[in-house]
Nucleic acid binder design. Sequence first.
DNA 1: CGGAATCTTGATACTGGTCAACTAGAGTGG
DNA 2: CCACTCTAGTTGACCAGTATCAAGATTCCG
Lengths: 243, 243
Amino acid sequence: MGPAIYAIPLCGGTTAPRQLLSFEERRKLSHIALIRRFEAGAFLFRETEQATEIFNIVAGVVKTTTTLADGRQSTVAFFFNHDLLGMFEAGYYSQTAEALTSVTTYSFPIDSLVPLLRKDPDLQFHFFSKVLDELRVAQRQALVLGRFGAAQRIALFLDLLDRHPEMHRSGGPSISIPMDRSDIADYVGLTVESVSRTLQRLHRAGIIYLDGRHAFEIRDRVALDRLIGGTVAADDQTLFPAL
Amino acid sequence: MGPAIYAIPLCGGTTAPRQLLSFEERRKLSHIALIRRFEAGAFLFRETEQATEIFNIVAGVVKTTTTLADGRQSTVAFFFNHDLLGMFEAGYYSQTAEALTSVTTYSFPIDSLVPLLRKDPDLQFHFFSKVLDELRVAQRQALVLGRFGAAQRIALFLDLLDRHPEMHRSGGPSISIPMDRSDIADYVGLTVESVSRTLQRLHRAGIIYLDGRHAFEIRDRVALDRLIGGTVAADDQTLFPAL
DNA sequence: CGGAATCTTGATACTGGTCAACTAGAGTGG
DNA sequence: CCACTCTAGTTGACCAGTATCAAGATTCCG
């Protein structure tokens, strides 16, 4: 079918993400694209490596991380179907990308992609829109990490998974969690222990149902949304009778 | 002199930010640009307004904020000289922009700018690079808010000001702080009280010198860098004898 | 079935938030 | 020019939430 980029369009009236590329654009991109597959745990690229390609995910989940000065790894973002990753700076990748599941991607060699974008302003505009989309996500993430408590952070994270149709297991209510607790912890800025505690608390409160380590269901959408809205104080006894 | 965009170039070998626009591009942009001035406290635009123009700052400082579900305002970013702001989504501004000082900008009407970008891929590529730059800043901000303590956050914020030459008062070591404590607090994800306490602590530790409310000097660059590096534990007695 | 991760749970410490009082500056009007 | 006032900022005491440290429980995988 060819590469695909989902994002909220810049100018179109919609607030809902949609496919940005026209049939013709997808064909053009196919032309320079390679299909590449990665096993779970494999690296798509590492930070400080010279940037050679940009990836468009077709299946699977990828996380990107940066190494802090003290050696800790910090998860920057998760990438799902129809996302673009491999944005670079001064010719070098600024993050490390690791496959969390087995992953299928289109790979655009930068040497082919950049000329294509410079020649085709409309196509470039769609890449541009996708990056703006990522910018908003990153800004929202900063906001969440700066001001929200553990329950809200976890709720937002679960909502992120819920929003991705490919995380829903075959029609049922079960949503898969492709990453392990420490990935989640790195992403939401908590410790593994706090992630675990918070998940269990939401589980015991009946808001979610934890189905093993790598799946969950949303049992009380309203309560979850209230948490995400940021309206609920931590001492809300209705939500956290077990506190 | 015309509009100017500073950022780390995508492909060039440099990691240092530099002017991205060619003389010719600046001329083209001048052609569609209006000069607009704002008093301190004035709004350049408000969230949910229809997006009509994009701004390029020539002088002054702007903050952008979003309103949370519970009514709190949260500062998303500060914009300085040669920055671009007014990025939008689905035709509407997603943030509110307020002048912190008196501000001079070039204003590009979107109706003129978008066609120009669609016609001129190289120019668009420079806007693209600037947005990628902002994306990295936002991701770094998320990282900082998620993992660092108060001292590190404040140190990073002071470093941000230091990096902007126009914040340095006439050659001297004094750096101006154009925003008030609550803006800082909103930005770094702390309360006003914690910002105050942390600034005073850095002051008493001799790392910075607070010169009134709206200026400071860096007295111990090495210690500040160590904080920023994230290497220093909060209990480091060399840095915080007063703890 | 056994060993090794991963995850959960509990006890305690510490950072930063909250609430409240106090101080310093900036502006105002007599 | 000097009180007066009002806002912004600082400081202190106390508390809540999360990190940390330390076991235990599960799950995964050979």
